[in-house]
Design a protein around this nucleic acid. Structure first.
Length: 210
DNA sequence: AAGCGGATCGTCT
DNA sequence: GACGATCCGCTTG
């Protein structure tokens, strides 16, 4: 239950997906729908790089579908997968440079199941109509910070892809029950820097999980 | 616990 | 016309 939060700034997303993805762990995803507002905490993300990342949609280049990824930072990239599920991403990097972060799981309290990218969008009532929306401005869907800093972020490989499977671009709140499966081997862990108040909040010190 | 196949449709070759 | 950044249910071990 966050007492107060502020939306994440545009500059937060003006860096590489590999930096933004771990920084989003512990942040809030706010969904306003009708008269209700729902606040959930992000516990799992994946980074999808630009045209060099063969697993990323941006690898196909600039198309009508990927336009959001090549556009301004901090906007919602929402697409239909397997004809059934919607996936929510946020675009990163300035206009012209593609990059995105996929939201894979969130903690929404007892009653909801937001574990998995398809469940997350369904649970929050996210629709394709929200594609391209600004996630840095309070509205139907946006991101916010309430000062929460996870004690440890685990790093592993991305789920459900066939290309570039080795890259360590999946990030999740270490040990959190809402993280989706399969967990896979933890390649490294990130821990908060003691006096970290600046841009670089996490330091990767653990070389290997045991 | 892990592995399979079906559902279902927008996007690009 | 093939293929998914997935999920669920059923099978097997």
């Amino acid at each position: 239950m966050p007492s107060s939060f502020r939306p994440l700034s545009r500059s937060f997303f003006l860096q590489s997906p590999a930096q933004v993805a771990p920084a989003l762990i512990g942040k809030l995803l706010v969904r306003r729908h009708g008269s209700s507002q729902r606040c959930v905490r992000i516990v799992e993300t994946e980074a999808y790089l630009g045209e060099d990342d063969s697993a990323a949609h941006a690898a196909a280049g600039l198309t009508p579908r990927t336009a959001v990824l090549f556009g301004d930072a901090g906007r919602a990239y929402i697409y239909l997968i397997y004809g059934i599920h919607l996936c929510l991403n946020v675009s990163t990097l300035p206009r012209g440079e593609a990059g995105g972060v996929l939201f894979r799981a969130a903690d929404g309290g007892n009653t909801s199941d937001l574990s998995g990218p398809g469940r997350l969008t369904r649970g929050l009532g996210i629709t394709a109509a929200l594609n391209g929306g600004d996630l840095t401005r309070p509205g139907p869907l946006f991101l916010a910070d309430d000062g929460c800093l996870p004690p440890a972020i685990a790093v592993s490989t991305r789920v459900g892809i066939r290309k570039a499977v080795r890259l360590p671009l999946r990030f999740f709140w270490d040990g959190h029950p809402a993280v989706s499966r399969p967990h896979g081997p933890v390649l490294s862990r990130l821990h908060p820097i003691a006096s970290g108040a600046g841009a670089r909040v996490y330091s990767g010190l653990t070389a290997h999980g045991h």
